[in-house]
Design a protein around this nucleic acid. Structure first.
Lengths: 197, 197
DNA sequence: TATTGACTAAAATGGTTTTTTAGTCAATAT
DNA sequence: ATATTGACTAAAAAACCATTTTAGTCAATA
């Protein structure tokens, strides 16, 4: 079979897997139901993926890949850095709030049992670090921002962004915190802003 | 027996309970070992506390009461509000990092199973809200701070403070994040600072 | 009022069997 | 060769049952 068709099948598997992993999570999803849903034998999945973990990893990778693509659009636009940072943070939270497989990797039991998602998570963290660094450095060049140490500031923003994920996504406080998130972002941008105006 | 002696026994029970709860946590601690440790019959504990949960609640209450007492000293001192806020946040984290029973209430399984610690937690949150509000309002009066809405700002600070607890205390990232915490506090104070100097 | 210790009911634990499920592989089809 | 199948295995999960532990009670007692 041709490469294109092979890629098709692989994609179909991932699509089906995404469906089930998103709905039932990693544990409650069986390889059999993923296979049955696409009218294939379970063994076939193992022709494309060497394990359930690797399949989940691929699903997670694609999920975050979509998030990255959307976030890149914010960084790409030519707007002032404070607005960019604000929009980046808001969009980031909204997108991740809908990333159900990413949520699974935040859960405590998943966290220490499964190291196999580490690479995808690290990749995403690195991506975000780069995006935020890019925004801040642009802001510095153009005089909108006044930051003594960009790296340290990025560290702080990353720490905050990552820390609020658990209350927001796992404890279902997204609605409750909605207003405060806006204030949080204002506090951050206010702190970084030079008084150039 | 006199009130004083009764209070003594109650305190002894709480002391013993603190010992075991701190070491083994709520689940792994038995009422029997608490009783045996003070050479009393288990039934006796139920003369002073109506349940294991109530006893744990009392232990938690005292633990947080100590934290509150130490934090009040920061707020009480007559220093400039930015320094106060900084010291408050740092001390808060250090004290809570050592509050093992408080940590237990942060754990996911505890979180949704046990509502009985809700009051103590709410009380502590209210206390902190008051302390931070006090610092900010003092700062406003004296012209050190420039905050459009004190309540919203307190919301943000509370959200950040509470959010970082899980990575810090449950995921053991205290050391890893130590430098970043200082930067975080600088970011906050920098944002709130008027340019009075 | 305070304390005891035997008591109960419910939950936790341990061990065993059964079922489910991830992963393999030889056979087969394309 | 490249895919796909479905029966197979080993291991994990679930279900089951017996036993033990433990939270909580209470009548007796100091």
């Amino acid at each position: 079979m041709s490469d294109i068709e092979a890629k098709e099948v692989k994609n179909i598997i991932v699509e089906s897997a995404t469906l089930f992993f998103s709905k039932y999570g990693f544990y409650k999803t069986t390889m059999d139901e993923i296979a049955q849903h696409i009218h294939k034998a379970k063994g076939g999945i193992y022709y494309y993926f060497k394990s359930k973990e690797e399949l989940f990893n691929e699903v997670l990778k694609q999920e975050l890949s979509n998030v990255k693509a959307e976030l890149r659009q914010v960084t790409g636009r030519n707007i002032d850095p404070l607005t960019a940072l604000k929009e980046y943070m808001l969009l980031r939270l909204e997108l991740l709030n809908n990333s159900l497989n990413y949520h699974e990797t935040l859960k405590a039991d998943f966290f220490d049992k499964y190291k196999f998602v580490k690479d995808v998570r690290n990749d995403f963290h690195l991506f975000e670090r780069n995006q935020i660094t890019f925004i801040l450095e642009k802001g510095m060049r153009e005089g909108y921002l006044n930051v003594t140490n960009v790296n340290s500031t990025v560290d702080v923003i990353m720490m905050i962004a990552n820390s609020i994920e658990i209350p927001l996504f796992l404890q279902n406080r997204y609605k409750e915190y909605e207003n405060t998130i806006n204030e949080l972002i204002s506090l951050i941008t206010n702190s970084l802003s030079s008084n150039k105006k």
